[in-house]
Amino acid sequence: MSHTAHIPSHRKPRRSAPKTALRAGVAGGVLSTIAVAGAAGPAQAEPVARTIEMPTITDGLSTAVAASAQATEQVAQDLRTQAQQDEAAASAAKAAKKAKAEAVRKAEAKKKAEAAAKAKAEAALRASRTQARTTLSAPTGGSPASTAVATSSSSSSSSSSSSATGSAASVVSFVKAQVGDAYVSGGTGPNSWDCSGLVQAAFRTVGVDLPRISQAQSTVGTQVSLSNLQPGDILYWGGAGSAYHVAVYVGGGEFVGAQNSSTGVVQRSLSYDPPSGAVRVL
């Protein structure tokens, strides 16, 4: 007996032919099915319906929307308030402009009225002084017009008989030499004068130092009647101490004075602008 007779064989047992054929046929069928399916193309998938749930509005989003609406309303309110303020400011500016124009108009009207009243008062004052002088010097009877002419003639005759001499002649000569010069308020020469500046300069030539202004010049020396004037006398318009104009009597019923910016220094008859009074310094 062989020494290997009892050792099991390590070879795998051979399968039977029927089982092998069956397994080959199943495998081939499966492979054929797969091949056919691949050739036929992919199968159409059935549509799938899915429901998507939308998120709900949260409390935070509601609060934000409310805040935005409130902010929009506040902006609208601010715009309305600003519009009202602008309209009020425009109305106030318009009212102020109208009030200013009215105030200017009233001021101009007042100024004109005051100027007219002053001119009227000055005219009335001159008329009353002329009348007073006429009454004092006129003979009884006769009309005011004839009396005034008689008074003027009498004064002129009386004055004409008096000729300037000495210092008075120098004063008269000086003021006559300035006729034609310009009138300038505050002017003291040598080519422009105001009324009191001319009178002061004239008397300074003979060593007499007069005050600078008309009011003071109307009170120096001795008050004299207008019917007894002499060359060199100072004539004044207005009251003594409150005169608003002065000039120098040069004889022959005439005076020289710096009248105004329109006429300058002129020589005029007393009847051109009858003075209120006179003072004698020389």
Rank of each mutant, 00 (worst) to 15 (best):
Pro8His: 09
Arg14Asn: 07
Arg15Leu: 07
Ser16Ala: 09
Ala21Arg: 12
Leu22Gly: 07
Arg23Gly: 06
Thr33Gln: 14
Thr33Cys: 12
Ile34His: 09
Ile34Arg: 15
Ile34Val: 12
Ile34Tyr: 10
Val36Asp: 11
Ala45Trp: 10
Val48Trp: 12
Glu53Ala: 11
Pro55Gln: 13
Thr58Arg: 14
Ser62Cys: 06
Thr63Arg: 15
Glu73Arg: 15
Glu73Gln: 12
Gln74Val: 07
Gln74Ala: 11
Ala76Phe: 04
Thr81His: 12
Asp86Val: 13
Glu87Asn: 14
Glu87Ile: 13
Ala88Gln: 15
Ala89Tyr: 14
Ala99Tyr: 15
Glu102Gly: 10
Val104Ala: 15
Val104His: 13
Val104Pro: 01
Lys112Ile: 00
Lys112Met: 08
Ala115Pro: 03
Lys118Phe: 09
Ala123Pro: 06
Ala127His: 10
Ser128Ala: 13
Arg133Lys: 15
Gly141Ser: 13
Ala145Glu: 10
Thr147His: 15
Val149Arg: 15
Ser155Trp: 11
Ser156Tyr: 11
Ser162Ala: 14
Ser163Gln: 14
Ser167His: 12
Ser170Thr: 09
Gly180Met: 02
Ala182Phe: 06
Ser185Glu: 11
Gly189Ser: 10
Pro190Asp: 11
Asn191Pro: 04
Asn191Asp: 08
Cys195Thr: 03
Ala201Met: 04
Ala202Ile: 05
Arg204Asp: 04
Thr205Phe: 05
Val206Leu: 06
Gly207Val: 03
Val208Ser: 06
Gln215Asp: 00
Gln217Gly: 02
Gly221Ser: 00
Val224Gln: 01
Ile234Asn: 03
Leu235Val: 01
Trp237Gly: 00
Gly238Ala: 01
Gly239Ile: 00
Ala243Tyr: 00
Tyr244His: 02
Ala247Val: 02
Gly252Lys: 00
Gly252Val: 01
Gln259Tyr: 05
Asn260Thr: 03
Thr263Trp: 07
Val266Gly: 03
Ser276Pro: 04
Gly277Cys: 04
Ala278Asp: 01
Ala278Lys: 02
Ala278Gly: 06
Ala278Thr: 00
